[in-house]
Write a protein that binds this DNA or RNA. Structure first.
Lengths: 142, 142
DNA sequence: TTCCGATACGTTATTTAGTAACACTGGCGA
DNA sequence: TCGCCAGTGTTACTAAATAACGTATCGGAA
């Protein structure tokens, strides 16, 4: 898993915030950095720990607020089935990503513009979709 | 939401257990009943509460063990994004259901044999998929 | 019969996740 | 300079899930 998408993605984040009149504060930036550099999905409390040697006194709300903010911008996605978070290096299309998570190495691939499911119940209007596929990635496969 | 799928589904469960040499013990049966009769997805700790006036001393492991067992048989699904559980009245195809959850009334519709996503990364072998759509159902729509 | 192993359940305790509520601060506009 | 407000600090709590170990029950083997 690469560790160097971080800087490009951070710049993209800066730009995005500017566009939207949002502030990428030091804490938010640091959390984004950590998530992007992390090896696979990261738990909130692991972020907290990683944050603490630096920030000293970070507590759960600190990290959850930052994550909420970043998710709002589509810079971070939550892996619901893991209670964990992944950075989004793609252009944030809004409208949920489709995640492919390797059970072996923990790598996460993200796809957008997922195939729209045509078997929704009659009249059901989809507002948000959670699509997470678990298995083995090409590298870990046999 | 109907309250009477329960009995048919329970019989189906009995049969399934027999087939597989599994035991649908009183606790497991009661939990399944509760999940099936519940109005929408149910939280583990709500089950616990519902169980306690009867069973007296049910504790988290009790209900989680029952839920694990029932999920193993495909009789119950977990809604990952809600940390909640729904009963499965359909024939259990194994291989994950696709859930349509109404944000308004809490109703859950389940579809099987979901369209296989064809945009998986090269070489990725899917073992388990979590597919949850949130929105408004036909009844709650406008 | 007694003993054994397996499966389910009871029980205690702990870890992990997430949020509510309120206080403080620093910048920015009126 | 006043007051607002977004962001953060802080305390405390609720919710979700599991670890570890003890107990009971039952069916089969000795």
């Amino acid at each position: 898993m690469s560790r160097s998408h971080s800087s490009e993605a951070l710049e993209a984040a800066e730009r995005l915030c500017q566009e939207r009149g949002e502030r990428l504060t030091p804490i938010r930036k640091r959390v984004l950095e950590l998530v992007l550099d992390w090896d696979g999905p990261v738990k909130a409390y692991d972020l907290l720990e990683a944050l603490n040697p630096e920030a000293g006194t970070a507590k759960p709300p600190t990290v959850y607020r930052a994550l909420d903010f970043l998710m709002g911008l589509g810079l971070v996605h939550k892996v619901e089935a893991l209670n964990a978070f992944v950075g989004c290096t793609h252009s944030h299309d809004e409208g949920g990503a489709e995640l492919y998570i390797c059970n072996n190495c923990g790598s996460v691939r993200e796809r957008h513009g997922a195939a729209v499911p045509h078997n929704a119940p009659e009249g059901f209007r989809i507002e948000r979709s959670v699509i997470e596929h678990f298995g083995h990635c090409g590298n870990c496969n046999s």
